[in-house]
Amino acid sequence: MVKKSAAEITILWIFFVLFVIYAITLLFPVAWCLNNSFKYQKEFMLNTWSFPKEFTIANWISSFEREIEGTNLAGMFVNSIILIVGCSFCSIGSSAVTAYCLAKYNFRGKGAFYSLAVVLMMIPSTGSTAAIYKMFFQIGLYDTFFGIFIMNLGGFGSGFLLLYGFFKNLPWSYAEAGFIDGASHFRVFFTVMLPMAVPGIAAVAILTCIGIWNDYYTVYMYAPSIITVAYGMQRLVAQTSYNANYPELFALMLLSMIPVIVVFCVFQKTIMNNTAVGGLKG
């Protein structure tokens, strides 16, 4: 191991200080919310910075009972979990399948598919909101879990690109061994290649889940009766601008953050080790 030079150590320390400052600016709002969640509403109106003169955990208790359209915080979590499980299953299933086929097999038009995937990702979907809304409503998929799941069945998104690289790096020899043993393509995929791909899929799954967890816009547009955590928080923030009960909102916000942070901390290594991003050439 070559030792670090003095210049390098200096650079590291300079940036360490900068990082600490930046980290403080990120953690500070969290601490601020925490502090204010222990205040009564009237006190918060008068004073948003100092420690609570009257300390109360009433907000924390009432935040468990707070409901949006009959769904309380626990219900929101349940909805969010259902959504991410279903959506990531559909999304990853579709992406894995597409990535596998394009990475390992050769067929006519393969290059076209790959380019298609890249291009597809780039075309803005905001403009098609209207058409999707119309279609959903016509087939009766509006405001259903199923509708959102189906939206995520696309095999040509970012998940695809991430998994493509992963599959490309998997050695084909295992599959060949399987073929020699007389297994069909399906068997090989499901029993040989897919299990080997689990780390990569897990990493992509986590990233996908985090994205869906935070996405309130999709639910807002296409399934507004399903109150997920993200959508519920948006509704609560809007409501709070009327009833001014900010301390309770802060309590709710912190509650909704904790599980996500825990999950991320734990799975950090998995994500980093297993996301190999494939090239853009196709």
Partner: peptide, 9 residues
Amino acid sequence: LPSIVSIVV
């Protein structure tokens, strides 16, 4: 953190 906390908040 900012990527996992609700943007609304």
